[in-house]
């Protein structure tokens, strides 16, 4: 801030020869001062600035890396039982210790990571495919079709998610694909509702109406206008679906109706560790508990970060 005094002294130094018409550079008045940045670039820049989301992203990359290579670099197999080596604490031989059947917890942890991540990602993908198609059609077509499609969704939405998953898991042969199937039955409903809402909203924006009046083809409108504008919330929704699917799998496995032995799952490992924590065998519980929490944490903070980064209202 300039103090008035300073201005006073400046006043004195105003020179007479400055009173001539200003030389003008053509179009100077028209120049836009700050360069415009594309939506995705801008979002990415903001995501990079979000420290917590970056922590989540780095953890996630490490977790995926270990899920791929962990079982390979481990000298022991995840299912090989060595009955002489039951419940050993972590050591240079067994990095995360062993369980009550003498299996290596390190190898089992990363096998569990594979299953958790697989379930999470596949469930999110199925939600994406069904949800986007269903919601997109309902939102874009509108009218009676939309009305009936949404009635159906409302009824499904009323079903308690985990209870349905449990019921279906009881009925199906337990295993990986039963879990994914059970998760997908009602999982896509949230995505469908969200996509429909977005499409409905964007459909009525002026720029879409404008391109319709120009006679733009439907497919082009969907590709150029609807998709880019719904992509943000869809990505966020998917990122947040993954941890809830991972939780559901662990929950089922913990209850004993999920992943079946000899396969390892973080949920079933934690469940198996229950009887022995009273005797102080902390590693049995700690490793699956820590990594499942870390995975859910990473997806949650990354999803939150994406949500903030992709929110056009926050753009500056």
């Amino acid at each position: 801030m300039e103090a008035p005094k300073q201005q006073e002294s400046k006043r004195a130094s105003v020179m007479d020869e400055w009173f001539v018409p200003k030389k003008r550079i053509l179009g100077e008045a028209e120049t836009v001062i700050r360069p415009s940045v594309s939506y995705w670039k801008d979002a990415w820049r903001r995501l990079l600035k979000n420290k917590l989301a970056m922590v989540g992203l780095v953890c996630l990359i490490l977790l995926i890396f270990m899920a791929i290579f962990g079982p390979i670099i481990s000298p022991h197999s995840a299912t090989h039982q060595v009955l002489q080596q039951q419940n050993l604490p972590p050591s240079s031989e067994h990095w995360f210790g062993t369980d009550e059947l003498g299996r290596d917890v390190f190898a089992r942890t990363w096998e569990g990571a594979r299953i958790s991540l697989f379930v999470g990602v596949v469930a999110a993908l199925i939600d994406f495919i069904i949800g986007v198609t269903y919601g997109g059609i309902a939102g874009y077509k509108g009218g009676k079709l939309d009305h009936y499609m949404m009635r159906f969704v409302e009824i499904l939405y009323g079903l308690p998610y985990l209870l349905v998953v449990i019921l279906v898991s009881v009925v199906l042969e337990p295993g990986l694909f039963s879990i994914i199937f059970a998760l997908s039955i009602t999982g896509w409903v949230g995505m469908a509702r969200m996509v429909r809402g977005q499409v409905l909203q964007i459909k009525n924006y002026e720029f879409v109406l404008a391109s319709q009046t120009f006679g733009t083809k439907t497919s082009r409108i969907i590709r150029r206008n609807l998709l880019p504008n719904t992509m943000g919330p869809i990505i966020v929704q998917m990122t947040l679906t993954v941890p809830s699917a991972i939780f559901a799998e662990a929950f089922l496995s913990f209850l004993g109706i999920g992943i079946q032995p000899p396969l390892a799952s973080w949920g079933s490992m934690a469940s198996d560790a229950l009887p022995v924590i009273l005797s102080g065998d902390w590693w049995r519980l700690f490793f699956p508990a820590f990594f499942i929490s870390l995975t859910m944490f990473s997806f949650n903070v990354l999803g939150d970060g994406l949500q903030d980064a992709l929110d056009p209202k926050l753009r500056r």
């Binding site: 020869e17 400055w18 001539v20 018409p21 200003k22 003008r24 028209e30």
Partner: peptide
């Protein structure tokens, strides 16, 4: 014509100078 100056870095002289048809060197 034109738009107001960016107030992140306000000009030292008259802020209207870029859009003023009577602008003089002193105004800058």
């Amino acid at each position: 014509a034109g738009s107001p100056p960016d107030l992140f870095a306000p000009p030292p002289g008259c802020p209207f100078v870029a859009r003023c048809q009577y602008a003089m060197e002193v105004c800058d």
